[in-house]
Design a protein around this nucleic acid. Structure first.
Length: 290
DNA sequence: CAAATCCCCTGCAGGC
DNA sequence: TGCCTGCAGGGGATTT
């Protein structure tokens, strides 16, 4: 799950590699769950088009084309945007272990490469690779509505107390579920939700309607701070991408609770606990978070 | 309307 | 060594 920071870092790294270039050829895998628009139509719609811009909306990437159409991408759990500047299958695998980060120095297409853009300038290709195919790809005709984007709430970088507080009223689900609800805040995923709850000292299981206005304010602030920090550190996985063995690196270093079940809390020493909330693991400090 | 459940997919870890 | 099971999870669709 690339979350907002990873998607933003990917956007920034891919922007100079794609904006202003004209797509000459498109290669795709066959239709699958991955293609919301049939692969054939995606290829047809992209051919000959120039990319004007690439933007991020929550965890989505949207590439604007010169005919007014747009390409919508979601990286799901294992999606990667890669460039063909160099080739190294080993680095692809390492990138997966290191958490789905795109690097502008990769690779040749393989069976998991669902979309490959070949440009008219014959320069580096851009590829979208996604092993588990939880990602999404859609082509929207000029002026066509995109319900997936329309549903999104406030971008999580703009999270604020009042929005969060309003969303928690009359909701009996866990507060963490509200943070993960993309129609409330767009961009927060499982990892940063845990981290924000830790920073704001709120227990993930707490019923949403039982959080106070002040807690929601703190939580919103924690969300924006943590996301900004993660972007600032290069999406939190960039660093260990270069570790040839793919062992734990930047990402887990930044996390205070996620993936740290049983380890001592960095604030109080209490053991970090893990519970399951709506089929997802939630990590928290039982002493710091109430 | 809210909430719970199911499902899409693949790789990998753990148990035996 | 190899097979089997369970787990990981974003998010939409369906059911309660």
């Amino acid at each position: 799950m690339p979350e907002l920071p990873e998607v933003e870092v990917i956007r920034r790294s891919i922007e100079p590699l794609i904006v202003g270039r004209t797509i000459a050829r498109v290669r795709t895998t066959g239709d699958s769950y991955f293609f919301l628009t049939p692969a054939r139509l995606v290829a047809k719609g992209l051919r000959g088009r120039r990319v004007l811009a690439i933007e991020r909306r929550g965890k989505y990437l949207v590439a604007a084309l010169d005919d007014g159409a747009s390409l919508l991408l979601h990286l799901g759990m294992t999606g990667q945007l890669l460039s063909s500047v160099a080739r190294s299958p080993r680095l692809v695998r390492s990138a997966e272990k290191a958490n789905w980060i795109a690097e502008p120095r990769v690779f040749a297409a393989d069976e998991h490469t669902h979309l490959e853009l070949v440009f008219a300038d014959r320069g580096p290709r851009v590829m979208l690779r996604d092993v588990r195919k939880f990602g999404k790809c859609a082509l929207r005709r000029p002026g066509e509505r995109e319900p997936r984007l329309e549903r999104l709430g406030v971008d999580a970088l703009e999270a604020c107390g009042p929005v969060l507080f309003a969303a928690t009223r009359r909701r009996r689900v866990a507060i963490k579920s509200i943070l993960l609800d993309q129609t409330v805040l767009a961009g927060v995923g499982n990892i940063y939700a845990d981290e924000a709850l830790f920073r704001a000292c709120v227990r993930p299981e707490r019923q949403a309607c039982h959080t106070t206005e002040a807690e929601c304010r703190n939580l919103a602030k924690a969300v924006t701070q943590i996301l900004r920090e993660a972007i600032g550190s290069g999406g939190s996985t960039i660093d260990d991408y270069v570790h040839p063995d793919g062992t734990d690196g930047g990402y887990s270093r930044l996390c205070r609770v996620y993936g740290r079940e049983g380890e001592p809390c960095s604030r109080c020493g209490q053991r970090i606990r893990r519970v399951v909330i709506q089929h997802r693991s939630a990590h928290f400090c039982p002493k710091c978070q109430r």
